[in-house]
Design a protein around this nucleic acid. Sequence first.
DNA 1: CTGAAAGCGCTAACAT
DNA 2: ATGTTAGCGCTTTCAG
Lengths: 350, 350
Amino acid sequence: MENSNQSITIDDVAKLAGVSKATVGRVIGNYGSVSDKSRRKVIEAVKELDYVPNTIAQGLRSHSTKTIAVILGSIKNGYCNELVYAIEKEAMKRGYNVLICNTHENLDKEIQHLQNIRSRQVDGVILIPVYTIGKVIPEKYRHLYESLNIPMVLVDRNIMGIEKDLVQSKNEEASYEATKYLISLGHRNIGVIGTVAYSTVQDRIKGYRRALQEAGITINASLVVDAEYSEKHVGQKLADKLLKEHPELTALYVLNNTLCGSVLLELKKRNLHMPDDLSLITWDDDELNELFDITTIVQYVEEIGRSAVKRLFELMENPQSRAEIQRIDTEMVVRKSCGKPKTVRWNSKA
Amino acid sequence: MENSNQSITIDDVAKLAGVSKATVGRVIGNYGSVSDKSRRKVIEAVKELDYVPNTIAQGLRSHSTKTIAVILGSIKNGYCNELVYAIEKEAMKRGYNVLICNTHENLDKEIQHLQNIRSRQVDGVILIPVYTIGKVIPEKYRHLYESLNIPMVLVDRNIMGIEKDLVQSKNEEASYEATKYLISLGHRNIGVIGTVAYSTVQDRIKGYRRALQEAGITINASLVVDAEYSEKHVGQKLADKLLKEHPELTALYVLNNTLCGSVLLELKKRNLHMPDDLSLITWDDDELNELFDITTIVQYVEEIGRSAVKRLFELMENPQSRAEIQRIDTEMVVRKSCGKPKTVRWNSKA
DNA sequence: CTGAAAGCGCTAACAT
DNA sequence: ATGTTAGCGCTTTCAG
């Protein structure tokens, strides 16, 4: 218990316990078979010396670093940090640590992280990929992902043209239901704001379209506007644009959590109240939504994280296992932001 | 470029380049001296084989894993994820990766992480400690922190009785100024809500008291209420309590970002408007604050992160360097949540 | 059940 | 400027 010196090694323990270091290894690594007597002696020596095995040395020898990496756009994003939280918790349970890597939504940085991770012999990767533009990935990049010989599961977004495990919400279905809900209230002109680049958002748009079609409502493409990632106050700008150009709108449907606050700013500016002047639905739960009583499609991010880790460990045990897609349920939390559409053109003045 | 096999080693490169592995090491590690000719050959071979050095092996040999760990309560906290973002960015620049560890504000878990990190030979630690209850740390724990022979800088919170580097905001000063601002508007009865357990919050309370004293206002301890960490909707509950028991209050001062949303919920419920019915100041920036036009004390979290990393690297180079405390400026962003106090007892009805 | 020996991939002395 | 050698701390054959 006394000496916390870094340099106590398995040899010291072996010497003190009067056994070989192989036996010590068996005890601390919990493999092979050791007599009770030896085990006791080793355990005592470990305690006596305050010995902790060197994970680095273990890693070099055993090719397992007990580390997984999470690569994503930015930990500052609400979805992402909830995800990382869940992943770390789950990994810790299994004795793994997690390395965090922000790509800043930059493909080159993602590649760089991936390379780096290879050199670190990380055991597995959970990735929210940048490349998801709805086009099949260029050969140059595809090669990188496929050649990377490391267990990997994608979360949230898919990469077209690549065979990888994926865990994500039922985006299309949830979006379909949400839109149907608006339609059932009487809305026929629903504006949509989202960052179209992401496969996730594309799926949500598909669901939106399907619901409209099913209700026999003509689809007006100009009601769906694309919010460039990382542009400041883009939600506000686009809400303004939509409301200005489409006085017929009676509802707004926001596809990214990050945009909603900014959209609310615009509603406030125009003195538009929910649900009387305008109905609103948004994705992802947030304190904001509760405060403003906004009806929300909640993703079970914790569950997504847990599933991703679970699948990753399966992959680590059996790297040949075929890629599969897991779609996690969502929940629509109905609050008070949606109502029957107004017949008066409240915003024609704008 | 062809083979992305894991098992390409420095030997393969040496063989292909026709030099010794020592020379290869010199080139990729960029030390010692190598002839231009050899260097070229090595670089070519590296490219040819798509070789990446094994960080684990490097670490075992050189005792530097190029990894730092960040240990904190929860990555879900806004302050924390901004901090981690800044740290990761800064670390990446220097070729370091960051390991993330959540303590869930649990001291035992923190210790566990610290132990684990030791076995991983992490080069340095940035820690937002759990133990900060304002009492000197018990010997049992103190020993653990001090014996841990690894460069470490604390962020945000201090541990009494321990000599460690610390980077934090000028909590006392900022709080003093904020309170003075409220006083200057005419407020004399200012309710305070915060999680008192944290040294940070204690400093903020000190600043609040100093401003009151200086203005000759009698300090009423019952105006400062303690929000238990992790209790749900505690902000709302405490705001309710304060307003109920102290109808003389004309301003609320919230010391943790996490509490503010919940406090707003209570104001909404009581139909209290800022600044007419009540003035409000809160700590930490947030979209919420902008949306509600709340005057806010903004911490420069990015700068705190950068400073912490910078200091950590100094410590890593010179572990004997004496512990020092860095206090980072804050900024009060004045919005519209504060005004002159009402003379009418608006909330006496409650 | 246990020990001896080899070696994971690299860097750091020490030669030359 | 370059190669040789040893060995970081551990796990893993392979004998016994």
